[in-house]
Design a protein around this nucleic acid. Structure first.
Lengths: 252, 252
DNA sequence: GCAAAAGTGTTAAGGTTACACCCATGG
DNA sequence: CCATGGGTGTAACCTTAACACTTTTGC
């Protein structure tokens, strides 16, 4: 190894890809973008969107490029970050592929339709609860994903769930301007349980720069009840102390 | 892109390496293992140990293998985890290399000498404070590391510093059996500031499974004062709520 | 007025901070 | 008996959890 590194000898060639777990909130539930594979291996199975890293770009650039292609959005306004790298030797039967997985999320992606610029056979937003990721036994009632994408998606989900605990990224899921109830629904969708209303407002409003108030009120057409104040995302990035999930983070 | 993926066309070939940021506590300070490069590029510069990922192994296996080779230890008893992947196109002038960086730490590594099984030109433990990582301007008083290893090391340091906040991994830095003062010195070395004595003990002892008491006492030879009780690592992995650093985590 | 949704208050419990203080041991 | 390090106690403060309650709107 270092011998090869020092002398510039031959080294094993790899393909390097990025895979994307793109989340959005659609009709109150957390949804992830999946594409259906046309060819073997795993023909017909659903998979995370992704593609090869080009010879002159880094993984982050490749991820941004794929994101634009798959979502059909020129300017993706949300958040993208590296998750982890998956490198099991048998993860792709055709060749030796190392995948740098990324997590992305943004508001309202599901509205414009995912297939706009996608070159996949089919693409759709799946509510994560319909994927049966928590079930230990795959098969019944669950979608079995291609390659190791179920592992990646599980890790991505946990990343998102924990990240909104100690950062302000939840606001990235909300369409601007948003009400505090909208923001709370983001937490409810991602965590599966809503934080206490009163404590939630206090937390958000007492964190400087989490949200900034606007002049407007939520004057919906047929909506009931008192109109809520509208907010935009503020400059703050971290929450301290963290917002706690109603049931707490998983052990381990 | 996905066209290539679907049809099995040609793809850009990459070299994939692992780089290791291996930490230990040596004489009360946090130290990292670096190797001195013998050849260009960056001949004479210090670098993180690492090597190519083999064609039949995953990145974690490669990291464990390198760890054993570089530290000369057959059974590495500490902790190893993936950090992130670094993939800038120009990070290695010779070829297109993607590196999956890992973080490792264990107690007492510096005692046995790092060069035992290493194939590097030279290897030594560097106190992290001597590396000048915090300085924005490299050069004066700081070691300039090869490739993007200063970036990797900065990220690795922040990972370790934050990880001991909410996990019991600090105990992985301590030789068993250890006193609570030993464990507190781990936090002091990693954070650069010691947590309050009384609060620290209460926190550790009130977290079930962080440490387990032993029968023994610390009966040193020429040591002064009251002998401390000795503990071993317990089965717990997470701390909740987290142990807070004296000055708090960095913003951003 | 009534239902619905937004927004405010209140109190008990528990954790943290920042100390001061006491205990055991070697010289 | 004194220095040294180990170990305990405590009061002010802050945050959270879990509610009950009030306000504003549309019908």
């Amino acid at each position: 190894m270092s011998a090869a590194k020092r002398s510039g000898e031959s080294y094993p060639p790899f393909a390097v890809t990025v895979d994307l777990a793109v989340f959005t909130i659609h009709e109150g539930t957390l949804a992830v973008l999946l594409v259906q594979r046309g060819d073997d291996p795993f023909a017909g199975h659903w998979a995370l969107p992704g593609g090869f890293v080009g010879i002159a770009e880094d993984a982050a650039s490749a991820a941004w490029r794929e994101l634009a292609e798959e979502t059909g959005l020129e300017r993706f306004s949300g958040h993208l970050e590296q998750l982890a790298t998956y490198s099991a030797p048998d993860r792709d039967p055709r060749m030796r592929v190392v995948s740098v997985a990324h997590v992305a999320f943004a508001p309202g992606l599901a509205r414009s339709g995912p297939t706009a610029g996608s070159d996949a056979a089919a693409a759709r937003w799946w509510p994560v609860e319909d994927l049966g990721l928590d079930a230990d036994a795959p098969g019944e009632g669950s979608v079995d994903l291609a390659f190791d994408h179920a592992d990646i998606l599980r890790d991505a989900l946990e990343r998102v769930r924990s990240k909104i605990e100690y950062t302000t990224l939840a606001a990235q899921f909300a369409d601007e301007p948003f009400t505090l109830a909208d923001l709370r629904r983001v937490y409810a969708a991602v965590w599966g349980a809503a934080p206490d209303l009163g404590n939630f407002r206090r937390k958000v409003l007492s964190t400087p720069g989490f949200v900034v108030a606007t002049e407007g009120r939520d004057e919906g057409d047929g909506r009931l009840g008192r109109p809520a104040l509208l907010y935009r995302r503020g400059p703050a990035t971290t929450l301290q102390p963290a917002m706690l999930r109603p049931d707490g983070p998983p052990a381990g």
